[in-house]
Amino acid sequence: MTEALIALTEEQVNQFRTEGYIVIKGLFSQEDIRTIEDTFEEMSHKAVPGYFEPDLSGETDDPLKRYPRVMHPHRFNETSKKYLLHKPVMDVLADLYGEEALAAQSMFYYKPPGSRGQALHQDNFYLQVEPGNCIAAWTAIDAANEENGSLLVVPKTSEHEISCPEIADSTESFTSHFVKPPKDQKAMPVIMDKGDVLFFNGNLIHGSYRNKTKDQFRRAFICHYANASATHISDHYRPLFRQDGTAVDLEINPDGGPCGVEFDMAYPH
């Protein structure tokens, strides 16, 4: 490697390049986790049109209607923007990219008891970062395991081309897209403790289990980034931000991807 690493070892960077993902233990302090918990607990009791629209009637049988994911909370909540640009995360990303990272998206998943998982998919199908790729930073706000719906990854699929998805099983997935893993490659669970962060490549095939518990949430703060040398991204992820909060407005990617321009690319991860 030609440049000095900031946060990782060469072994860790090589693992990311080979496997397509890496878990960094305890990257968020327990104080940071409590701040995020408190922020999204307060947020869960009110709607933010266009970003978070829970069914607060008390009449829904679908836990994900009461606790849907929050999209782009950094656009209206300063705590979310602070942790989107969290220096320990940005330092890891700089090592993985070999250059500065640009923050493109934030999300919060409550994943309440009994909720469906998410079918296997690839992130850069949606973000369309070019040249380069997106990287996700998936922070465990609760410990994640096979019972409460941990993330699933298909190792070594980071070099797998972006695929046009099939239709997912709506009884198990709350999203409609499914990418079939290559033959003889299987999804494996990623077991995480509170404060751990999973970083993974935008081509990596991944998804999540259903939350099979009756009393455990599996909350996660999830952000997506692009490399600073990228010139294009999907319109839904602009503007991007440097670590200092400066906005960066990449060009809109006009490429329809493997499904063509008529396919609905607007369904964010």
Results as ranks from 00 to 15, higher is better:
Phe263Val: 03
Leu152Met: 11
Ile135Arg: 00
Arg218Glu: 01
Ser158Ile: 09
Ile33Tyr: 05
Pro165Ile: 06
Ala187Arg: 05
Pro268Ile: 14
Phe108Ser: 01
Gly257Val: 06
Ile162Cys: 09
Pro155Leu: 12
Met90Pro: 03
Glu78Gln: 13
Asp264Gln: 10
Arg17Cys: 08
Gln122Val: 03
Gly207Gln: 05
Lys87Pro: 11
Thr231Cys: 09
Arg34Lys: 15
Glu262Met: 10
Met90Lys: 01
Lys65Gln: 14
Asn227Gln: 14
Cys223Lys: 01
Pro49Cys: 08
Pro189Lys: 02
Thr213Val: 00
Gly202Glu: 12
Ala103Met: 07
Phe16His: 08
Gly98Pro: 05
Glu31Thr: 06
Ala101Thr: 03
Ala168Asp: 02
Glu159Ala: 13
Pro155Thr: 08
His121Asn: 12
Thr246Lys: 14
Asp169Ile: 02
Glu59Leu: 15
Gly26Leu: 06
His206Glu: 03
Ser173Tyr: 09
Val154Arg: 04
Ile205Arg: 00
Leu27Arg: 04
Asn145Ala: 05
His121Ser: 13
Ala137Thr: 03
Leu64Glu: 13
Ala4Asp: 12
Ala101Met: 06
Leu102Gln: 07
Gly207Lys: 01
Asp255Arg: 00
Lys212Cys: 06
Lys194Glu: 12
Leu250Ala: 05
His177Lys: 04
Arg17Asn: 15
Phe40Asp: 11
His86Gly: 06
Gln128Asn: 13
Cys223Pro: 00
Tyr126Asp: 11
Phe76Asn: 11
Met1Val: 02
Arg34Ile: 11
Tyr126Arg: 03
Ser115Ala: 14
Arg218Trp: 01
Arg218Ile: 00
Ala220Tyr: 03
Ala103Asp: 07
Leu127Met: 12
His72Val: 12
Arg210Leu: 00
Asp55Met: 07
Ser173Phe: 07
Gln30Tyr: 13
Val13Asp: 02
Asn14Asp: 14
Thr139Ala: 15
Gly245His: 09
Glu130Ala: 14
Thr39Asn: 14
Pro49Asp: 13
Glu100Asn: 12
Ile167Ser: 14
Asp95Trp: 02
Gly257Tyr: 04
Val248Gly: 02
Gly149Val: 00
Asn211His: 03
Leu64Met: 12
Pro49Ser: 10
Pro63Ile: 04
Asn148Asp: 04
Asp32Asn: 14
Thr246Arg: 13
Glu99Trp: 01
Asp196Val: 04
Arg75Val: 09
Tyr67Thr: 08
Ser170Lys: 13
Gln15Met: 08
Glu147Asp: 15
Glu130Phe: 10
Lys87Tyr: 02
Ser150Thr: 15
Lys65Met: 13
Phe40Cys: 10
Gly132Lys: 00
Thr139Asp: 08
Met90Asp: 05
Asn133Phe: 11
Phe217Arg: 00
Ser170Ala: 12
Met192Pro: 09
Lys82Arg: 11
Asn148Tyr: 02
Phe217Leu: 06
Ser158Leu: 07
His232Cys: 11
Gln243Lys: 14
Thr2Asp: 10
Leu120Phe: 08
Lys87Leu: 05
Tyr110Phe: 15
Glu37Ser: 13
Ile222Leu: 08
